[in-house]
């Protein structure tokens, strides 16, 4: 059996002590965050368990879905799709100047660059539904507010992703055009656009998929689409209508995801 020199207990203590101290520090911080949070939200396992039956009985009331109601859902469903399409489309257009301004290899002016990046990051912190709620209050109820909210969100998200790809393009083609005396616009058209187009298209489609999901709930804040009848059904406790709406929403989201994947194959 091994006869190597015996390790002193002191050394054992040292090796394992460092580890313990680190763990302890992390544990104290985490424990503090959890106690603070649990007290803040009035967390109580007892209450969660006690109320679960009422949650499930509520779900139970949704079965079976009211199939007949589905006929009345076609118009709001179409509106949901239209909101997402237009929001994504306008977003994809408005994003172009923002993308260029927020890429440090296109915009050489530091101040403009940081302003554009900053603007993007600020707008990104606010969720789409808040934009929708604000626009509903400011402009009025309806799909138009929902569409504008989605436009704002799409613009900044596509710009963020695309500007990052833009900053990573290769300089070879740019140099080549510079060498033959192309001007800035020509360089963008023939050296930048071809490199960035696939990423831009792909991100736009990705945002479109998110937007479909968002536009199904826009109605809950009064911004149009299938969420409007959902809101009404829930307010009137017509849970079987609500479950029908949720069901068609599911189908819509899955169908659009599938279509978007196919479209990606064609376009990208």
């Amino acid at each position: 059996m091994p006869q190597g020199k015996k390790v002193k207990a002191q050394k054992v203590a040292r090796v394992f002590w460092v580890d313990r101290l680190k763990k302890l520090g992390a544990l104290v911080i985490i424990a503090f965050i959890y106690i603070w949070s649990a007290r803040g939200v009035g967390f109580s396992l007892l209450e969660i368990i006690r109320e679960l039956p009422s949650f499930f009985s509520l779900l139970g009331e949704m079965i079976p879905p009211n199939w007949a109601y589905s006929r009345r859902l076609i118009a709001p469903l179409v509106e949901t799709i239209q909101i997402a399409i237009l929001g994504s489309f306008f977003g994809a257009i408005l994003t172009i100047p923002l993308t260029l301004l927020a890429a440090n290899n296109v915009t050489r002016n530091k101040y403009i660059y940081f302003f554009a990046k900053g603007l993007m990051n600020i707008f990104r912190t606010i969720p789409e539904l808040l934009y929708a709620a604000i626009l509903v209050a400011g402009i009025g109820l309806g799909a138009f507010s929902g569409m504008l909210a989605i436009t704002i969100f799409s613009t900044v998200v596509i710009a963020k992703l695309t500007s990052e790809s833009l900053e990573a393009i290769s300089y070879g083609p740019l140099e080549a055009l510079q060498a033959v005396g192309g001007n800035k616009l020509q360089m963008i058209r023939y050296a930048v656009v071809p490199q960035i187009l696939p990423a831009y298209t792909s991100y736009s489609l990705y945002v479109f998929e998110i937007n479909i999901r968002v536009s199904t709930v826009l109605g809950l804040v009064g911004a149009g689409g299938i969420g409007v009848p959902l809101q009404t059904s829930l307010n009137l406790f017509r849970y079987q209508n609500a479950s029908m709406i949720i069901l068609v929403t599911f189908i819509l989201v899955m169908a659009i995801d599938y279509a978007s994947t196919k479209l990606r194959e064609v376009l990208v």
Partner: peptide, 19 residues
């Protein structure tokens, strides 16, 4: 067991890499 583990490391001359 911790002692056994550390002395095993010393025997292959990397006792100081334990952590």
């Amino acid at each position: 067991d911790k002692e056994i583990a550390l002395s095993a490391l010393e025997r292959v001359r990397i006792g100081e890499k334990a952590n």
